[in-house]
Simulated scan of single mutants.
Amino acid sequence: MPKPTTSRTVTSRDGTSIAYEQAGSGPALILVDAAGHYRGLSSFGGLIDLLAANFTVYHYDRRGRGDSTDTQPYAVEREVDDLAALIDEAGGSAFLYGFSSGALLALHAAANGLTIPKLALLEPPIDTTEDRSAQAAFTAELAELIAAERRTAAVEHFLTGVGVPDEVVAGMRESQSWSAMEAVAHTLVYDCMVSEATSLQLLASVSVPTLVLGSAASGDDLTGMTATIAKAMPNSLHRSLPGEWHGVPDDVLAPALTEFFER
Rank of each mutant, 00 (worst) to 15 (best):
G113P: 01
S17Y: 00
D166Y: 04
E21D: 12
T16M: 04
C192R: 09
A52R: 00
Q201K: 13
R263G: 14
F44E: 09
R63F: 01
L213Y: 05
V164C: 12
H59Y: 02
A204P: 08
A84Y: 05
S42C: 08
P165Y: 11
D250W: 11
L222R: 13
E167M: 07
A75C: 06
E167L: 04
E77P: 01
F260W: 11
H238T: 00
A120T: 02
A84L: 05
G15C: 09
A254G: 00
L51F: 03
I229V: 15
T258W: 02
P255S: 09
T128G: 10
G46A: 12
L105Y: 01
Q22F: 12
L86G: 00
D14R: 01
A143I: 04
L51M: 04
L107A: 04
E144R: 12
V189T: 11
L237A: 03
L50R: 15
P124Y: 08
E174L: 11
V164Q: 13
P125G: 02
L222C: 03
V155E: 07
S93L: 02
S7C: 05
S12F: 04
L213S: 00
V169Y: 04
L241A: 12
R78I: 02
V80W: 09
Y60V: 06
S207E: 15
A35I: 10
P73I: 06
R39W: 11
R78T: 13
H59W: 11
V164A: 07
T198A: 13
V76C: 07
F95E: 07
R173A: 14
A19H: 15
T69I: 10
A185G: 05
H186E: 14
L145M: 09
E141C: 06
S177T: 13
G113Q: 04
R132L: 15
G36C: 05
P249W: 08
S215V: 01
T223M: 14
G219R: 09
V164F: 12
S7N: 02
S17M: 12
L202K: 07
V194F: 02
T56M: 11
E196G: 04
A35T: 10
D88K: 10
T9A: 05
Y38F: 14
L31I: 05
R239S: 02
A143V: 01
T69F: 00
P73W: 10
D81P: 00
L211Y: 05
S218M: 12
P209G: 09
W245H: 15
T152F: 10
G171R: 07
I126A: 08
L121A: 06
D49A: 15
H246P: 06
L96M: 00
E196V: 08
L200D: 13
V189N: 05
G219F: 07
F138M: 08
E244D: 12
S218W: 11
